[in-house]
Design a protein around this nucleic acid. Structure first.
Lengths: 212, 212
DNA sequence: TGTACATCAGTGAACGCGCGTTCACTGATGTAC
DNA sequence: TGTACATCAGTGAACGCGCGTTCACTGATGTAC
């Protein structure tokens, strides 16, 4: 009566969300690749056959996880680094890691399937991460404290390190987490800005980028 | 008659190697997590029940892949960087990528299972990679051209980037591979040495462009 | 307003299939005497 | 040297099980008139 439309629609969305969440939970425990349709349906509280009302197969569900839940999380992190309050490495770590702690299962999913068996899913996750890389690159470009605009691959490398370190940090105790944060923020800043510590005066030869 | 002993032993090793290789091949195609014991045994040309003569289960086989084949490859790369002929980033990339090209299936395995579902296997692969990180760290420490000794996590971050980039390069065309090499060697050298220097001379600026 | 119809998420039975695992056995190879 | 015994990788039959998928159906919700 309140909602003229979409009482049915709302229920559909509720079940769909339950499927996504169930897949995340089970996948975090036993791996996503070995996850079965019946298993997920059971955990979501519906009959196995009802699964097909929402997804054609498990891969389609996986892509929905990427393009919806992962995308949302990434967008959040992008927002955070748009107005940096600190060294970029710390800002992006803090935002990303907070998101990872809030939803560890999603983090495991991202980390595992980024190198997983399904090319389509890999590609979709790569797309999500490249959004973050571009945001990071843009933030670095407008950061007045940086001596120069870093190349695009610096941001991409930073995102690779960030994803890896955040996922590993979830398994660790607080003090190890702090070490990972230190190492990761240090590396990101070093990639984006050149030297973090002083004294690096030497411009060594022979990388693809030849010094003048 | 020539070999008094181990005619039996040799055959055993042959079958065992066939199982490992079959698992790599099938795993590269469809993912390791969803790989079945019967499937591997079939591909190796033995009866399903014979599998148990070599491994208790698929996880044990996976760990054998890591602690034997991956370890051998890593050791090879470690050898190469022990006597660097060039900037460390290029040396380690060239050694690692050559190994990856020679055995792409092993590379896929390493890349996928490093973040995979089995904690034991993850830990073992992590151990292999940390060997490389230490070798890289040692090489950097004795590299007179570096202005300072980089922290340990610089080498760890470098290995993460290297592994990721090599695995992705296998899927790419030559020109994209060259871009990955440039980006990866640049990042590794920057991590290890601090600044590579501003004002790059090399090719046209910035955006090697993210994925297509 | 009421009535007839359309939609469609969810269902339970049923199917064929490949899986992991057990078991007792075979037979070639290696060893002890 | 030959003979008897031990070892053990490989085997095929058999098991129970959970899987993905199909099908015709139900029934609540939404819509047209």
């Amino acid at each position: 009566v309140f909602r003229t439309n979409s009482q049915k629609k709302g229920e559909r969305d509720r079940v769909r969300a339950a499927l996504l969440r169930a897949a995340l939970q089970l996948g975090a425990a036993h791996g996503f690749a070995s996850l079965g349709l019946r298993e997920v349906a059971r955990a979501a509280g519906i009959a196995p056959t009802s699964f097909y009302r929402h997804f054609a197969d498990m891969q389609e569900l996986g892509i929905a996880l990427s393009s919806e839940l992962v995308a949302r999380t990434i967008a959040e992190v992008c927002d955070a680094i748009r107005t940096p309050t600190n060294a970029l490495g710390e800002v992006v770590w803090d935002a990303m890691f907070a998101a990872c702690v809030r939803d560890p299962e999603l983090t495991r999913f991202l980390s595992a399937e980024r190198a997983g068996a399904s090319p389509e899913l890999r590609a979709d996750l790569q797309r999500q991460l490249s959004v973050l890389a571009q945001a990071l690159s843009a933030a670095a470009a407008t950061d007045a404290t940086l001596p120069e605009k870093p190349p695009a691959w610096a941001a991409e490398a930073a995102v690779v390190l960030l994803t890896d370190a955040c996922a590993r940090a979830l398994d660790e105790q607080p003090e190890q987490r702090a070490a990972l944060r230190d190492g990761c923020t240090w590396a990101i800043d070093r990639l984006l800005s050149g030297a973090v510590s002083p004294s690096s005066k030497r411009t060594s030869r022979s990388t693809p980028e030849v010094s003048s």
